[in-house]
């Protein structure tokens, strides 16, 4: 399957951080969550951000996705500098250019699966592209369950709805925050498969935060974060190579 023309070529940058810092608190309670992080997320690539708890991986994602403000440095989605945007513009940016998959609270319980999937477009007041929507729904295997409400779906199915929602509006980039954290391993594998397929077959760009080496092994590239800094990077990872690197940081962390 060829990539859609609407998407940039594989070499373009979908999002980029330059010297990005995030500091919480002041004086004695000062915590540096991100310490001058520079990283690039290439379009059409599936990147995993890994790191132990408190490494700043979620903060990095939040800053890149326009959910959190940065203390210094720059965060860009495509050509848009996020730190220059006001809340209203940020909201619009998230709506039009970014897709989200969270660990939990992904769906509105009052809406059907179909309504949840088209929610970002409904908010924008846009009509969904019917053909594209059908394709997305087929890809995640939800055609039979579109009229169900979240409470009638399993955890894995709910997360598939969330993935479909993220894909439906063809965002420039999808951020996934521990998307398999609440799922059993089979459902988790399914979700990760969809995310990978969306990159491979639909040309989507995906950035996923995870602490699970198996999940990270689905990505094209893994970025390792520790103490708010990027400490390593791995291309074409497997669960074993990722685990290997992780152990190294843990060991370092303990000896240092």
């Amino acid at each position: 399957m060829t990539t859609t023309t609407a998407h940039p070529t594989a070499t373009a940058t979908a999002a980029r951080a330059v010297d990005l810092s995030k500091v919480y608190g002041d004086g004695e309670t000062r915590v540096v969550a991100l310490d001058a992080v520079s990283v690039e997320f290439r379009a059409g690539e599936f990147t995993a951000i890994m790191g132990p708890s408190g490494s700043g991986k979620s903060t990095l994602m939040h800053c890149m996705a326009g959910l959190d403000t940065v203390s210094s440095g720059s965060a860009r989605i495509g050509d848009t500098e996020l730190s220059a945007l006001k809340d209203k513009q940020l909201t619009k940016l998230r709506r039009d250019k970014i897709g989200f998959v969270f660990q939990a609270f992904n769906l509105l319980p009052t809406l059907t699966a179909a309504e949840n999937i088209t929610l970002p477009m409904d908010i924008a007041g846009r009509k969904a592209d019917k053909q594209w929507l059908d394709r997305v729904v087929d890809t995640v295997g939800l055609s039979e369950r579109l009229s169900h409400r979240p409470s009638q779906l399993s955890g894995g199915q709910q997360q598939r709805v969330a993935v479909a929602r993220a894909l439906a509006s063809r965002p420039e980039i999808i951020f996934a925050d521990e998307p398999t954290g609440n799922l059993d391993s089979r459902s988790g594998a399914e979700i990760l498969g969809f995310l990978r397929n969306s990159v491979k077959e639909l040309g989507q760009t995906v950035v996923m935060v995870t602490h699970d080496p198996v999940a990270a092994s689905y990505a094209d590239r893994v970025v390792f974060l520790a103490d708010g800094r990027i400490v390593d990077e791995l291309h074409g990872p497997t669960a074993d190579t990722v685990l290997e690197r992780m152990k190294r940081f843990d060991a370092k962390g303990r000896t240092s």
């Binding site: 909201t91 998230r94 709506r95 897709g99 319980p109 908010i123």
Partner: peptide, 16 residues
């Protein structure tokens, strides 16, 4: 709270 947070994340602005 969670739902509203999610809605805001996926693009519902404050006015909405």
């Amino acid at each position: 709270k969670h739902e509203i947070g999610m809605l805001r994340a996926i693009g519902l602005d404050r006015a909405a």
